[in-house]
Amino acid sequence: MADSMAPTAPQDGETRRDFLQLVTGAFAAVGVGAVVWPFISSMNPARDVLALSTTEVDLTPIATGSAVTVMWRGKPVFVRNRTAEEIQVARQVPLSQLPDPATDQSRVKKDQWLVLVGVCTHLGCVPLGQKPTDPRGDYGGWFCPCHGSHYDTSGRIRKGPAPTNLLVPEYAFTSDTQIRVG
């Protein structure tokens, strides 16, 4: 009995056993993955969070040289009405001097209006520079107090640990004096 059950060619038997182990292992891995995925996925943003709200901003009260902060997706958005001098300074910088090169023109839709997500690209603090009394850093834009990143008047990183420029969100001018962020 025992003899008849023993595989005649040991190599064949090993191959078949290996195959069965692989198939069983593969099914188990797929099964575990299928069960684990809902747990992981549930931690991603829920549908109500994903239902992106848009934020309308009225530009009329923002005087030249001042800025407002609005909330969009739980984050601050900076809307700055830049002075001619600030625009000029931002455009005179050679791109070779920028850690994350981008022209000022590529970051605005209308020269005077700069719209940025007000979250430092280093570790997510809100940079200072919105209020006239705030420190604006070495380049006249924004200064992140957490780890000392300096942004210029185009919201580009100039000095400090932040790797990229302040993000420009999706936005559109719905009229000459109104924008919709998102």
Binding site: M43, N44, P45, V49, R73, L123, G124
Partner: peptide, 29 residues
């Protein structure tokens, strides 16, 4: 702000960093 800074540490991971941070937050902040 401690939570913001520490969770943002994971955004330094190339390619998948931002997705991981969104997953950690369960939102966009």
């Amino acid at each position: 702000w401690g939570a913001t800074v520490i969770t943002n540490l994971f955004s330094a991971i190339p390619l998948v960093g931002e997705s991981i941070v969104t997953w950690l937050w369960g939102g966009f902040s």
